[in-house]
Amino acid sequence: MAEADAPVILLVEDDEDLRNAYRIVLSALGLRVVTADRGEDALSSLDAGPTDAIVADLGLPGLAGPRLVRSLRSAAPEAALAVLTGHDSDSLRRSCRAAGADVFLVKPVTARELKAVLEELLRSSSSGSPA
């Protein structure tokens, strides 16, 4: 279970089953997980406390896609930011990168794979090298 100094992950996913699956397994793997099912709620969560990394689904109701990525990046300039989507295209990858995403992940991604990616991003950012 998560230690008090474990990284805090904000997970933004509108699919309830996947949100729960990631929350349960990432917590069991030692991360502290905060969840949101909409982009607007995710921005409120960022205001509420420090966040080390964000995992955001792109296909949300309301604020979504590269616009969501831009908003998250603006609200949390220091956080590692991974986007997660079932829709893969070169133009979407470029848009998300330009909006501030550190990594673009195409579903399906398991919680363990997600944890490995986030740890790598956090290591890179703490050592000062680009992700």
Partner: peptide, 11 residues
């Protein structure tokens, strides 16, 4: 289908 597959594979 990729979203439910993520849940299944994660569990």
């Amino acid at each position: 289908l990729r979203t439910p597959l993520s849940s299944i594979l994660t569990y």
